[in-house]
């Protein structure tokens, strides 16, 4: 046992860094505080420009169309259309503890929302109608947006 190890595929010598660099980000929320407070209560907020009526999701504190800062939060409707989806089988390190999950993109009231689809992959079809809600995954503190197909 020395400091040199060997790559499992090529057998070539490698040095495994014994020092692990732990990275954790702290994201300042600013006006997004309101979005996350609502999400904890099960509501999903978008933003609406009071000047020109432009709707946005995810929320933003100014309007990219007219640059107005006169913005209000509004609650997204709870029924939308599933545009597309994929079942993630090989997961990133930070999601490796979960069983395979389906990520979908849903169009609702002119904006698009990303979330997890609760269904079997085989049963899904683009353009089908879904119910949009918020829930916590077993063992998770973080609320997530979920889509459930409406029969």
């Amino acid at each position: 046992m020395g400091i040199i190890e060997f790559d499992e595929k090529t057998g070539k010598p490698i040095l495994i860094d014994p020092r692990i660099f732990r990275v954790q980000f702290r994201s300042s929320l600013g006006k997004l505080e309101k979005y996350y407070r609502a999400l904890e209560e099960g509501r999903i907020l978008g933003t609406l420009c009071r000047e020109c009526g432009y709707k946005q999701y995810p929320p933003r504190s100014y309007c990219p169309r007219c640059r107005s800062k006169d913005i209000e939060f509004y609650e997204l409707p709870s029924v939308g259309r599933l545009l597309t989806f994929t079942e993630v089988n090989v997961k990133p390190q930070t999601h490796s503890q979960y069983p395979d999950y389906i990520v979908g993109v849903v169009e609702v009231d002119g904006v698009k929302v990303v979330g997890h689809v609760k269904a079997r992959f085989e049963d899904l079809k683009p353009d089908q109608t879904v119910e949009i809600s918020v829930e916590k995954r077993e063992g998770d503190e973080f609320p997530r947006i979920v889509f459930k197909p409406i029969k």
């Binding site: 597309t84 994929t86 993630v88 997961k91 999950y101 990520v103 990303v114 979330g115 683009p126 947006i145």
Partner: peptide, 17 residues
């Protein structure tokens, strides 16, 4: 962060559609 999408996942969304 919340949905665990990957790069294959991003392009899979295009493939499905």
């Amino acid at each position: 962060r919340d949905y665990g999408i990957t790069f294959p996942g991003y392009y899979a969304l295009f493939m499905t559609r």
